[in-house]
């Protein structure tokens, strides 16, 4: 059994693979962000005010990673469409 190299894949399939991969990573980060938000809220309601800043910083970093992944997907998407239009 031979595995198909990503270069040999048709552009649309390659685009789908990239989007699926990015989506999985974003989903994992999102789950961590949801947990972080609920933990920060719980802590705030319990009267601890010092946890809000680190929680916000980490959440911000995770959002930036998600945004970066989205921009990457967008770039791949553009390339896939361009190659589709050229064909």
């Amino acid at each position: 059994m031979t595995m198909q190299s990503p270069i040999d894949m048709p552009p649309k399939t390659r685009g789908l693979t990239v989007i699926a991969g990015a989506m999985s990573l974003i989903a994992v980060l999102l789950i961590v962000q949801i947990w972080l938000l609920s933990a920060a809220l719980e802590s705030f309601l319990a009267g601890n005010r010092h946890t809000a800043l680190p929680a916000t910083v980490f959440s911000g970093v995770m959002f930036l990673i998600c945004l970066g992944l989205y921009l990457f997907v967008d770039r791949v998407d553009s390339e896939v469409r361009r190659s589709g239009e050229e064909r």
Partner: peptide, 27 residues
């Protein structure tokens, strides 16, 4: 799939805004 990716990123932004809101309330 592309739309779901956009939606997930938007949700991530929502979580970040939620954390900012808690931070502002704390400050």
């Amino acid at each position: 799939r592309r739309q779901l990716t956009k939606f997930l990123v938007l949700t991530s932004f929502g979580m970040f805004v939620g954390n900012i809101w808690i931070l502002v309330r704390s400050l």
